[in-house]
Design a protein around this nucleic acid. Structure first.
Lengths: 315, 315
DNA sequence: TTCATAGCGACATGATTTGTCACTATCATA
DNA sequence: TATGATAGTGACAAATCATGTCGCTATGAA
């Protein structure tokens, strides 16, 4: 392959790897004169590599946060799958990334071969990953994620049912579920793990001076096992008919285990946290006669209480 | 920019777009001699573009099914966002793509600059898009999507509440919501639009000989408006407090418009389909005192009926 | 001030690229 | 079977491009 084109491609990779470098350095690496490197760098710039330079001692070139992916061979299916997965991000009103993801998608789309593009166009209105739309913004996702990754303690005002309270937490991670963002974290106030809803954070997030605890081995994948051990659990037992089974599977996700019989009916049998009684009461009322709660009695009482309340509401 | 390098990059895009072409053709496109194009194509080959050629009339060059994406400049943020969006696909037990998406992800990951890779590794266990896990497989997603794109009529056995029935439908599209796949379609049996759950298709899907109707202008984005026109609508009016507003936003998605007042409370005001009365009755019972249904009276009656039923159930 | 860096322009030289031409090979099809 | 459309190669001269060198400016840190 020709010298120059080859060098340009190598150069592209090299600058991406080094991120900071001087013209002289590269001239040595590539055994060409600095002048040549200068010209090459200008070409790279023209090709879209975002180079930035500063003169003076300790100056030099830098690649800005844009990186250039080298040519990657994707099969058509792969490209389409990646496109639509990223496309689904448009449903989120908040993301922990600063970027407009639409910019990334446009690039991706623009550089695709024409027929893949055609295929995407045809599918665009016929295929989607739906995520409930919320207007609720969660502006602190980036900070929380950073804190989780870097093991930092943060504090903020949090709007819980019992009112606004200042919290000091060390995030384990963040995740989106049904259009809302959640942040499981260690709460220094409660001295225990708690789940926070990111949209209920009602003040700026500040870094705290509290020493972080060691959460390196606790992450989204294993936190449930770890946090569950500590609760004083209530035993939940619910009979479900076919419809009930299906709804529970859809709506409870993986937190609660749904057992299924051959005829399609089933039952729930789980340890639950006393705090979640109001949630389950509402949930099973919503299921109507598709679910029959047998235990715990405290849950049954709550359901009755709510039913009576509602009877009054609708006279 | 220098002629040759420029041309090579353009060429890379062009061959990816055209997939099949002759040397002469390209020579015209690029205003160079065929000889030059030949030499260029050899270089591209050397760079990994999978070219294949055949001599003779109707021969020419082809790009094999792996496509090479040219170098794309992504910001670090963009790359990370695309990675995690695609990563979220692993939650789906069924996808309409044949490919293992993990293969695509590995490639993507592999070619990233080292420090982006590090960042991804750090985030992997601390960031996720959660989708309710279902064991339910939907093996016909690909076929349904094809049928939607290509305007074809298909038929299959469908397991609805009223039992197994043979259905003949023309899909509008498919979408995933809360871990389940749905297929809105025109149903030739009901002579109307219906929503099918892809996992309830209980037989092979066959192409039907029925003539397709013209659904080119109906797609996931507008089907609701179109299908609604035909119904005899009921007017829904519901008062919501703050919590009610939030739940409706989360759970009703974009189908129903939630109006919000300054104090956080709000109301629903919509046309609804009489068929969806049972759904809404359950839904608003589930909201408890966070919602107060004012209209239509038929819905209120249904709610009362269900409440009474449940009171009896729990004595 | 001095030094290390980026950056530009001009120019001669050497290297590469290009077009042209003449040739071979393959294959579909008229 | 002949023909034409296609890929593919080699050689060489002409055109173009790339490179190094030199001299210069500008900037900013130490």
């Amino acid at each position: 392959m020709s010298n120059k084109s080859h060098r340009l491609i190598e150069l592209m990779m090299t600058v991406n790897r080094k991120r900071k470098f001087t013209v002289k350095e590269l001239a040595n690496d590539f055994n060409v004169s600095p002048r040549t490197i200068l010209r090459d760098l200008q070409e790279l710039s023209g090709l879209g590599v975002p180079l930035y330079s500063e003169v003076g001692p300790h100056g030099g070139y830098q690649v800005l946060n844009e990186r250039v992916l080298p040519p990657i061979a994707f099969t058509e299916e792969e490209a389409v799958a990646i496109f639509f997965a990223s496309h689904a991000l448009r449903h989120y009103s908040s993301l922990p990334f600063e970027t407009e993801t639409s910019a990334a998608l446009k690039k991706f789309y623009f550089y695709m071969p024409g027929d893949v593009r055609d295929r995407i166009d045809q599918m665009k209105n016929r295929f989607d990953f739906v995520i409930p739309v919320r207007q609720v913004k969660s502006p602190y996702l980036g900070i929380l994620l950073d804190a989780a990754v870097q093991q930092k303690v943060v504090c903020f005002e949090y709007e819980s049912k019992s009112g606004k309270l200042s919290r000091e937490i060390q995030p384990i991670g963040i995740y989106a579920s049904s259009g809302l963002w959640y942040c499981p974290a260690y709460c220094f106030m409660r001295k225990d793990y708690r789940l926070f809803r990111c949209d209920k954070i009602s003040s700026e997030i500040r870094l705290s001076t509290t020493d972080p605890i060691d959460l390196r081995d606790i992450h989204l994948g294993n936190r449930i096992a770890i946090t569950k051990e500590k609760k004083t659990p209530l035993r939940l037992y619910v009979e479900l008919n076919r419809e009930g089974v299906q709804k529970c599977e859809t709506e409870l996700g993986r937190h609660i285990n749904v057992n299924i019989r051959e005829d399609g009916s089933g039952w729930l049998e789980n340890q639950i946290d006393p705090q979640s009684i109001p949630f389950f009461a509402k949930f099973f009322i919503g299921l109507g006669k598709d679910a029959m709660v047998k235990k715990p009695s405290i849950l049954i009482d709550k359901i009755k209480e709510m039913l009576i309340e509602m009877m009054q509401q609708y006279k």
